[in-house]
Amino acid sequence: MLNVKEILEWIAVLSVLLASIISMISAFGMIRLPDVYTRSHAATKSSTMAVLACLSGAFIYFWVHDGYVSVRLILGIVFVFITAPVSGHLVTRAAYRARVPLAEGSGDDALKPVLFGDEQTSPTITADNVDKHE
C-alpha cells in the first residue's frame, strides 16, 4: 500500500509532470504572444516556475528514493531563482533600448520620450531589419 515514501515519490513525479505541462504552456505562450515584451512574461515567469517545480520534484525524489540530499540541486534552485528575473529584465531592457517596437494595442509608451527624446521621425527598427542592422 501507499506508504509515506511512495506518496512522496508520487508527489515528486507529479510535480515533474506539472512542470512539464507548465513548460509546454509557456512554450505556447512564446509562440502565440505578439511581441517580445509579452513573450518575455511567458518565458521568465512560467518557465522559472516549471524549472523550480521540476527541480524540487527531482530533489524530493532523490531524497526519498536514495536518501540523498543533493546540495547541488538546492544550489541550482537558488541559482535559477536569483538569476531568472535578472536575465529577463536585462533582455527586455535591451530589447527596448534596441527599439524593438511594442505590439499594437499596447497602450501608451511613457518611457519612449524620456529615453529617446522626441525623435518621432527616427526610424524605428522593424522586426525584419533587426538582423541586418547588426
Binding site: V36, R39, S40, G88, T92, A95, A98, V100, D131
Partner: peptide, 8 residues
C-alpha cells in the same frame, strides 16, 4: 523575429 526574442 528580433534578437531579444531569440535570446529569451
Amino acid at each position: 523575429p528580433t534578437m531579444p526574442d531569440r535570446a529569451i
